[in-house]
Amino acid sequence: MKQNQSAQAMNIGRGRQKSYWRRNIERLLPLLAVWFLTSFGAGILFVDKLDEIEFLGFPLGFFFAQQGSIYVFLILIVVYIRTMNTLDDEYQDVGPEENPS
């Protein structure tokens, strides 16, 4: 059990946990910003402005509202899965007390 380890090791563990969480949030925020800008931004708030531009046979705002935003959502989740996998690999030593076997 981890409780038996020295206080110093515990402190390092705490610091690592905090930095993992901070880096996790740092990676979340830009993704959420893109999520907001494509759906609520391009698809709703600026839709009329963007409609003046034509894109693949669609008015651009309409495209975002009915097609584009869904593709962007999918890309966002894929990017998130990849970033988090890398981050998790870096922090494999954090939270080992839950390791089974």
Binding site: L28, W35, Q66, S69, L76, Y80
Partner: peptide
């Protein structure tokens, strides 16, 4: 027409929140 987009974006965009948060 375009007003129906709320269902398209709403019912898919929720998955971004689910996956990330």
């Amino acid at each position: 027409g375009r007003d129906g987009s709320v269902y398209l974006m709403g019912w898919t965009g929720g998955y971004v929140l689910l996956a990330l948060l």
